[in-house]
Design a protein around this nucleic acid. Sequence first.
DNA 1: CTTTCTAATGTTATATTATTACATAACGTT
DNA 2: AACGTTATGTAATAATATAACATTAGAAAG
Lengths: 133, 133
Amino acid sequence: MSKMQKEHTLTKNQQIVFDLVEKSSEPLKAYSILFNVQKKGIKAPLQVYRALDRLVEIGKIHKIESRNAFIACHNSSCQVAKATAFSICEICEKVTEISSAGLSKYLTNFKDKDGMKYSKYNLEFFGLCKKCR
Amino acid sequence: MSKMQKEHTLTKNQQIVFDLVEKSSEPLKAYSILFNVQKKGIKAPLQVYRALDRLVEIGKIHKIESRNAFIACHNSSCQVAKATAFSICEICEKVTEISSAGLSKYLTNFKDKDGMKYSKYNLEFFGLCKKCR
DNA sequence: CTTTCTAATGTTATATTATTACATAACGTT
DNA sequence: AACGTTATGTAATAATATAACATTAGAAAG
């Protein structure tokens, strides 16, 4: 484990939800997660949302805001989930996390007209993926 | 009217919804819009959502995805709503549309590892606004 | 080991956001 | 006038998310 990354031991529900999201090749929606973890004893939406909230907080997963869906983090450099970028195919809905040092550097250092600097950002690109073009 | 911008005559419901969003100093949520236009004869959520969808499509308003709220476009350069950027204060929830030629140019030209270029993006920055700092 | 504190869990109910389905009306074009 | 298209009206319901409150589990201190 990296020295820089704080260790977060996942609780039971968090682990169950994370395992599912992590295994998935596509972003999962909260109620789809709920349906799929009911056999593991999670019965209510709130149990899922609480686990998701915490997992987002510690950067293990990200929320795709335009889709209300969750995807595991595949970018070791966004450990605290403060700088996220995704590409989304508008046909097949495939979502990929973008790991670009240049992009991340540009946005992290971006200052607006008032000189305001931001502590966090989320960027979603839309277009057609290779397959769908 | 700019030569570049296509003229879109708004229909009755679209105009009612747009007028409200346009007057507002903060992003409005769909059901808050509904409540506020009931005196104008709009009675159902769907009427609001249809107007919002169309207004977003033609670039008169934008959706703040992380807040499920809508704000009028204040950026003459994003006429077709394909390149949007906002700053969001995490305390007071003030939202401002960012107009930065540099940012817009950088993102519009951004290509990922596979050389994929995108037709659209939405960027949301989070931090504390002047007042809340 | 037991008290205390905190975080996580369990459970029910409900709030909020958004869409499906279908019927009708308005409008431009031929 | 007939036709196709877009907008509207309406009811019902689906999908997403949170409030409120009770209970349990685990860590830390004495």
